[in-house]
C-alpha cells in the first residue's frame, strides 16, 4: 500500500514538475515570441484587400506601373482573375496581388549580400539596389512570386508599399487609385486605424498561410482557388495572372 502511494505521489510530482515547467516556459516564451514577431517597430504597416469590392479594373496595376516606371513585362502589383465552375454554377472573382511584406520574409535570410531586409521602423521589406547583385535566390525563395529582376538595373525588385509615399504620410499609389476602395492601407499597431479594425473584426485570410511567412496583406472574401486545386475530375478552374508567365507558381 505504502509503496503504491509513494509511486503515485512520485509520478504526480514528476507530472506536476512537468506541467509547471511547461507553464513557466509558456509564460516566459510566449510574450517574447509575440514581441519578436512584432519587433520593436512603432509602425506596423499592413494592407487589407476586400476582394468583394474588387472589379478587376487593373487601376492599381497601372498606378503602380506609372509610380515606379516599372519596365514592360514585369509587375510590382497585378490582378489575377479566378474563374471556376460549369455553367450555370460559375463564379468569377479577382485577386489583387502585391508583396505581402511578411513578418517572416523567406526572401531575407537567403539574400547573400544583405541587400534585402525588413525595415525595423515599419516592417516593410525592401531591396537595396546598390548592393543587390541579381542572383535571383530571393525570387526562388518567395512563395508569392512577387519578385522580379528589373531589366534596367539588373537587380531584384518588388512592391515596397510605396515607401517613398508612406514615409511622407501618403497612401500607397494603388490604394490611392482604387475605384471601389477594395485596398485599405494603414498601421496595425494603431488600434483605431481602419486596417486594424478590419483585421480584428472581419474574417480575413492571407495567401499560402502554410508557408509560415505571416503576411501583412490580408484579404476579405478572396477566392483561394487554384488550378492545382482541381480535385473533382472535370471541375473547371482557370486563373488568369495577367503576367507574361501565365501560371501561378
Amino acid at each position: 500500500m505504502k509503496a503504491t502511494a509513494t509511486t503515485i505521489s512520485r509520478r504526480d510530482l514528476v507530472g506536476n514538475i512537468g506541467k509547471g515547467a511547461t507553464l513557466a516556459a509558456a509564460v516566459t516564451v510566449l510574450p517574447g515570441k509575440a514581441k519578436a514577431a512584432l519587433g520593436n517597430q512603432s509602425v506596423h504597416y499592413a494592407m487589407v484587400i476586400d476582394a468583394r469590392k474588387c472589379t478587376g479594373c487593373h487601376a492599381c496595376s497601372v498606378a503602380c506601373k506609372t509610380e515606379f516606371e516599372v519596365p514592360l513585362g514585369v509587375h510590382r502589383s497585378w490582378v489575377e482573375y479566378v474563374e471556376k465552375g460549369t455553367y450555370p454554377d460559375v463564379s468569377r472573382s479577382f485577386l489583387p496581388r502585391l508583396c505581402n511584406q511578411c513578418d517572416v520574409p523567406l526572401c531575407v535570410p537567403v539574400c547573400p549580400t544583405g541587400a534585402t531586409y525588413k525595415r525595423k521602423e515599419d516592417g516593410i521589406v525592401v531591396v537595396d539596389a546598390d548592393i543587390c547583385i541579381g542572383c535571383k535566390y530571393c525570387m526562388q525563395a518567395c512563395p508569392y512570386d512577387v519578385r522580379f529582376i528589373n531589366p534596367n538595373t539588373g537587380t531584384a525588385d518588388k512592391c515596397d508599399f510605396c515607401l517613398h509615399r508612406v514615409t511622407q504620410g501618403l497612401e500607397p499609389s494603388c490604394v490611392n487609385t482604387c475605384q471601389g476602395r477594395a485596398r485599405i492601407f494603414g498601421d496595425l499597431n494603431d488600434p483605431d486605424s481602419e486596417v486594424a479594425k478590419l483585421v480584428a473584426t472581419e474574417p480575413v485570410t492571407v495567401l499560402r498561410q502554410e508557408m509560415g511567412t505571416k503576411p501583412n496583406v490580408f484579404y476579405i472574401g478572396a477566392d483561394h482557388a487554384d488550378e492545382s486545386d482541381t480535385r473533382v475530375p472535370g471541375q473547371y478552374i482557370r486563373v488568369d495572372t495577367h503576367r507574361p508567365v501565365l501560371e501561378r507558381r
Binding site: 535570410p109 537567403v110 539574400c111 547573400p112 543587390c132 547583385i133 541579381g134 529582376i149 531589366p151 539588373g154
Partner: peptide, 29 residues
C-alpha cells in the same frame, strides 16, 4: 546574375563586377 545581364545589355562596366558584393559580407544565407 541579373546585374551581369544588365551590364551586357547596357554596356555598363560598373555592373559587370557587382558580384564583388558577395565578398564584402558574410551571412547565414
Amino acid at each position: 546574375l541579373g546585374t551581369f545581364q544588365a551590364a551586357v545589355a547596357q554596356g555598363d562596366i560598373g555592373l559587370f563586377f557587382k558580384w564583388i558584393n558577395l565578398f564584402l559580407t558574410i551571412n547565414l544565407s
